[in-house]
């Protein structure tokens, strides 16, 4: 595997990429402004908006079919230390994709990794989970118990 020389596993990277794509651009901008030593970087691929076809399965688990498309913006950056960061984020926000790619590059650098995982990724993840939980609790309040005159089983 090409990651053997890296200080992170593919699984770890998938996790932080997920958090970065699901966070809002403002959150990432705020976190980025909070980083004191920002590396210089250049674009290997400038932020670009396109679409991906979302696939689903008939019956939820069977035959694959093309359900519909969604907008996605991607970006690839290379820091001066040589780390290449990638991002594919939902929507059309170029800055979101760029920031997600930058954080992806930083997180591959063991000098930054722990700090950013704790300071940024963990916080983003927690605030997202909190929002999700709030939504879920509101739905939970609409859970019903149906009563019938005779319980038939």
């Amino acid at each position: 595997m090409s990651f053997s020389r890296n200080s992170f596993t593919t699984k770890e990277r998938q996790k932080w990429m997920s958090v970065l794509s699901k966070s809002s651009c403002q959150e990432l901008e705020g976190a980025w402004q909070g980083i004191s030593e920002k590396p210089d970087y250049r674009h290997l691929r400038k932020p670009e908006t396109g679409i991906i076809m979302v696939r689903a399965r008939a019956g939820g688990s069977g035959l694959r079919f093309n359900f519909g498309e969604m907008t996605v913006t991607r970006c690839t950056v290379k820091t001066d230390e040589g780390y290449v960061g990638c991002a594919y984020v939902m929507g059309r926000d170029h800055r979101h994709a760029e920031l997600a790619a930058l954080f992806d590059a930083l997180l591959q650098n063991s000098g930054y990794k722990l700090k950013i995982l704790n300071m940024v990724i963990l916080k983003l993840k927690e605030s997202r989970e909190k929002r999700k939980e709030e939504i879920s609790k509101k739905s939970a309040a609409t859970k019903v118990d149906f009563f019938t005159m005779v319980r038939g089983d």
């Binding site: 674009h43 290997l44 691929r45 400038k46 670009e48 690839t76 290379k78 040589g82 290449v84 990638c86």
Partner: peptide, 16 residues
Amino acid sequence: ATIDLNQMTPGFSDPV
């Protein structure tokens, strides 16, 4: 083969 991004160079400066 996996794409080696460490050796990658940019494409168009303005893709559109």
